[in-house]
């Protein structure tokens, strides 16, 4: 395979193995941050839409993408950033929701809030499924998550906030 030109399909396959460092059950593709991939004889172009402005993982993700594609045989990797449209949890697939749940993180409930509507959530517990849960803190270990607790099984859990 030496000197073979990497196709877009191969590039997507390589990217499917690049995990988010903070939520290691989701790949960067499942998270929806890889927006576009194009490949030609000179290399691979990847367009990334960052999640939160304050997400410290953004730089790590960029270098992981680069590394994965070079390892898979890309001649050169160019990663660029696209801000608009802004990243939204609406881009998470149903499969991604299921993976989050299995990992003990409640997936976002409903679409991202718009306008000035009040944002109050009561996500069901990802462990026992109970709807009797309460919020402990609006921000969890990362900006994208909040900390909740199940009133029935008493387990604390993280909630992936819709944005």
């Amino acid at each position: 395979m030496v000197n073979a030109v990497m196709t877009e399909q191969q590039a997507w396959q390589a990217l499917a193995a690049v995990m988010d460092p903070e939520v290691p059950v989701l790949s960067v593709c499942e998270l929806g941050i890889v927006r576009d991939v194009s490949a030609d004889a000179t290399g691979v172009d990847v367009v990334v839409t960052p999640t939160y402005s304050g997400c410290p993982a953004t730089r790590v993700i960029e270098s992981s993408i680069r590394e994965a594609l070079l390892d898979a045989g890309a001649a050169e990797v160019r990663v660029s950033t696209r801000l608009a449209p802004a990243w939204t949890t609406d881009w998470l697939s149903e499969a991604a929701h299921e993976k989050l749940r299995a990992h003990g993180i409640a997936p976002p409930v409903g679409d991202a809030p718009v306008g000035v509507q009040v944002i109050r959530f009561q996500p069901p517990c990802p462990r026992c499924g109970s709807r009797r849960t309460e919020r402990l803190s609006a921000f969890g270990a990362t900006a994208c998550k909040a900390l909740h607790r199940c009133v029935d099984c008493r387990e604390p859990f993280e909630y992936f906030k819709p944005i």
Partner: peptide, 20 residues
């Protein structure tokens, strides 16, 4: 602890917005 984390997360967003 929870508020320490919340305020620090907000600080990171502010700095991230400032960087852009």
């Amino acid at each position: 602890l929870e508020e320490d984390i919340a305020i620090t997360n907000i600080a990171l967003d502010c700095i991230g917005q400032a960087r852009l």
